[in-house]
Simulated assay, not measured.
Amino acid sequence: MTLAQRAFERLHAWPDLSTGPASCGTGRALRSARDEIVHFHSDRDVDLHLTHRAIQRFRQDLGGSSAIHLVPGSRWVTVHLDCDADVDLLLSLVSIALKAHQTPPAADLPPGCNFRRVTVLPRAAAGEV
């Protein structure tokens, strides 16, 4: 079982999430009653729909993780799953996303996840010059 499959199975059991196709057309999604929250695009790459406010609040922490990739202007963050700790991080961030989506967004930003907007390099290669 891949890390993405393991994360999907764990999140699928959460009562506040339901499954369906990702609106971007690639992969599966988990959604709350209001919004799509998670897109599973591959065995390792997951897009998580945070609000602008949540991204701003946690920007420094998100930017400090080698598993997280931010795209300027996007309400989505890409999580690259390389180990079990990354799955745990994703689950924690989904909890934050669910809480953040309980209130209407403060600003109307462009729709769509980060699929095809993020290139993830393996961690070993990311530090090489």
Rank of each mutant, 00 (worst) to 15 (best):
M1I: 07
L3G: 11
A4M: 01
Q5N: 06
R6L: 08
A7D: 10
A7Y: 07
F8T: 02
R10H: 12
L11W: 11
L11F: 13
H12R: 12
H12Q: 12
A13H: 05
W14F: 00
W14H: 15
P15F: 02
P15G: 05
P15M: 03
P15N: 03
D16N: 05
L17Y: 04
S18D: 11
S18E: 13
S23C: 05
C24P: 02
C24W: 06
T26F: 07
R28W: 14
R28H: 08
R31M: 02
R31T: 09
S32G: 10
S32N: 10
S32I: 10
S32D: 13
R34C: 12
E36R: 05
I37Q: 09
I37M: 04
V38N: 08
H39Y: 14
F40Q: 03
F40H: 06
S42D: 15
S42P: 06
S42H: 12
S42C: 14
R44I: 09
R44C: 09
D45M: 11
V46I: 12
L48R: 05
H49R: 15
T51D: 08
T51C: 02
H52C: 07
H52E: 15
H52A: 15
H52V: 12
R53Y: 05
A54L: 11
A54K: 10
A54C: 10
I55V: 10
Q56D: 15
Q56S: 13
R57L: 13
R57M: 10
R57Q: 11
F58T: 00
Q60N: 11
L62M: 05
G63V: 01
G63C: 04
G64M: 00
G64V: 01
S65R: 01
S65N: 05
S65D: 04
S66V: 00
S66E: 15
A67P: 01
A67W: 01
A67R: 01
I68D: 03
I68M: 08
H69Q: 11
L70V: 00
L70C: 01
L70P: 00
V71I: 05
V71K: 02
P72F: 04
W76K: 02
V77K: 00
T78E: 06
T78S: 12
V79C: 00
H80K: 03
L81Q: 04
L81Y: 03
D82I: 01
D82L: 05
C83D: 15
D84G: 07
D84L: 08
D84M: 06
D84R: 09
D84T: 10
D84H: 12
D86I: 00
V87H: 02
D88V: 06
L89H: 06
L90Q: 06
L91M: 12
V94L: 06
I96T: 14
I96A: 00
I96K: 01
L98H: 09
K99W: 12
H101G: 07
Q102G: 15
T103R: 14
P104H: 09
P104M: 09
A106L: 14
A106C: 10
D108Q: 10
D108I: 13
P110E: 10
P110L: 11
P111W: 15
G112V: 04
G112M: 03
C113R: 09
C113V: 08
N114I: 06
N114Q: 11
F115S: 04
R116C: 15
R117H: 09
V118I: 15
T119S: 13
T119C: 13
T119H: 10
V120C: 08
V120Q: 00
P122Y: 07
P122S: 14
A124G: 04
A124Y: 11
A125Q: 12
A126R: 10
A126H: 02
E128V: 14
